[in-house]
Write a protein that binds this DNA or RNA. Sequence first.
DNA 1: TCGTAATTACGAACGCTGTTCTATAGCCGA
DNA 2: TCGGCTATAGAACAGCGTTCGTAATTACGA
Lengths: 263, 263
Amino acid sequence: MATARPDKPAPGLPTPPGRRPRRAAPPRRPLTQEAVVEAAIGVLDAEGLEAVTMRRVAQELGTGPASLYAHVSGKEELRELMLDRVAAEIRLPEPDPARWQEQLKELAREIRRVYTSHRDIALVSMGLIPTGPHLLDVAEAQLALMRAGGVPKKIAGMAVDTLGMFLDADAIEGTVYYAKAPAGEDPHEFFEAYFGQFREYFAALPKDRYPTITGMVEELTDADDDGRFEFGLDLLVRGIASYVKDADRAEDGDRAEDAGSAG
Amino acid sequence: MATARPDKPAPGLPTPPGRRPRRAAPPRRPLTQEAVVEAAIGVLDAEGLEAVTMRRVAQELGTGPASLYAHVSGKEELRELMLDRVAAEIRLPEPDPARWQEQLKELAREIRRVYTSHRDIALVSMGLIPTGPHLLDVAEAQLALMRAGGVPKKIAGMAVDTLGMFLDADAIEGTVYYAKAPAGEDPHEFFEAYFGQFREYFAALPKDRYPTITGMVEELTDADDDGRFEFGLDLLVRGIASYVKDADRAEDGDRAEDAGSAG
DNA sequence: TCGTAATTACGAACGCTGTTCTATAGCCGA
DNA sequence: TCGGCTATAGAACAGCGTTCGTAATTACGA
């Protein structure tokens, strides 16, 4: 993970004779914003967002926390830069109007894949208006897909927001549990036991106060993450699609079977 | 806000003769978990979730941070207790199967009202499996409404999760902006300027890289919070309702106009 | 009424955090 | 060769969650 820094002077040792005493010798790679963000993402992937402290990132770069402030205005900006760098990994589709709904779903799955592969980075995304170039690329792609499918501007504008909320919330939900798993333990096995505890808890609730919950314990503690994601995604995309015919109906006789009345 | 504790002995003064020198006299209201949670919510409402520190809550109770740990296992438990106490304010409906969709929406609006009235409490809810009694009451009510409307168990189990994610994300999004507003400034006026900045930013983006975004700046920076919420809510509820006829069709001819094909 | 056990309360301290101040080291143009 | 400038980082500040050990107060049995 951390590349070795070969020429760091050993602290406490006197300067050898014949060598210029350049204190705090400049590291091989001089500090740049890019290097700071890269180091921060390294810590994120290895230890989670909570471990991404200015001190920890600085340590990764072989320096002190104060040095970071020359390249980053503070922790918040660093987190946003991390998010945008992560967003650069999201592969974007070429819009094909005939398949816009499936393409929108595919893009959502791709975003989910990238988000969950970087621990709890979605916590940064929640409630943030995208301004970084790569985050804007993703938003542009989503909007382009919907517009190509005939979704009205106003609807698309709201839908990209709702979709983003859903993706953030899903990734957070997923990684919150993941973060609870002790390091070096099989996550799947851990979740089994973790959800099992809740299953017992729900089953033991008083039936007179919680008749519905106690009657569907199995359905509530089913840890089928992918299934829940697909369910929510389908709900949203179908809902968005239902607004299409109001704007331009019968222009593209793609699939006339669905699309209920909107309003 | 903070009720006066009338008989706290003035520090530094000698004990008056004839009065027993009970040092650290027990406050009128002895420390209880309930009192701790109440004080914490007081701080939350006044200064936001970030200000709810163990020290700040202890100060509100006229004691030190160590004293809280006798009634609360730590900060995380305190936050969950706060959330459950807030959830107790949510007014729950009597299920009326004929109106279940509208009732589900009304309940969602009620949850939104309570959440946003307590600053960023929704941050605690995100990614948390509800276990507190009042949170379970809310989940029970949502599930009861859907079941009364004929939503299959499996669908209802996933829908309550999706709906919760949507509500949490919406409340967080709303309060994140609210938290940015400087204290003592008209929030509406602030948002006008705040979103205005983003409008300019989006409008200034390169048109060749972001053709869709730059073509719908107005739609994207429209700060109609309620409209966006209703849009997402309608998407979800209509989607949930679309699964009803698969289970028990033609039992209640409520509104046959909508409900597209499911699956 | 007294003496003792158990409970509650809390001051002090530890190891963290983000950020700022200040001084220094090295590079660049003159 | 000499300034000026920027990048660097050591030290420090205020605040955080939590723990420890001790003091005070209650409750209880005699």
